[in-house]
Amino acid sequence: MTEEHPYQGERPQRQRGRRVLVVLLILLLVLIGLLVTADRVAAGMAERVLADQVRTEIAQQNVEAGPPEVEIGGFPFVTQVLDGRYKRISIGLREVRGSVQGDVLALPTLDIDAHDVTASLDTLRSGQGEVVAGSVTGTGTVSYDSLAARLDQEGLRLGERDGKLVVTAPVDILGERLPVTGTADLKVDQGRVALRFTNLTAEGMPSGPLARVLLNNFAQGISVDVPLPELPFDLTVREVRPLPEGLQVTAEAAEVPINAAG
Rank of each mutant, 00 (worst) to 15 (best):
G191E: 08
R150V: 14
H115M: 11
G191F: 13
S135A: 14
G204N: 04
L174N: 09
S120T: 13
T2K: 09
R238A: 14
R150I: 09
G221Y: 03
E154A: 13
P6D: 02
L24D: 00
F197P: 07
A184F: 09
E160C: 06
R150A: 14
A251K: 07
Q8M: 06
V166C: 04
L25Q: 04
V20I: 06
R48S: 15
G66V: 02
R55T: 15
Y144C: 07
G155T: 07
G129E: 07
M205G: 05
P242D: 04
I72V: 14
D225I: 01
E203A: 12
L82I: 09
Q15W: 08
R192T: 07
R196N: 12
P76A: 08
L147Q: 05
L200M: 01
A65Q: 06
Y86Q: 04
G191Q: 11
R19M: 06
Q220M: 13
V166P: 02
R97W: 07
G129R: 09
A211S: 15
V131T: 09
Q15E: 14
M205C: 04
N62W: 00
L231F: 04
V167W: 01
G17L: 05
L29R: 08
R125W: 08
L28G: 10
L186R: 13
R192Q: 15
I173V: 11
L243V: 00
L235W: 08
L151G: 12
G208T: 07
E239N: 11
A133K: 05
D39A: 00
I26Q: 03
V100C: 06
V237W: 02
P108K: 02
A43W: 10
E154K: 14
V136G: 11
E47H: 10
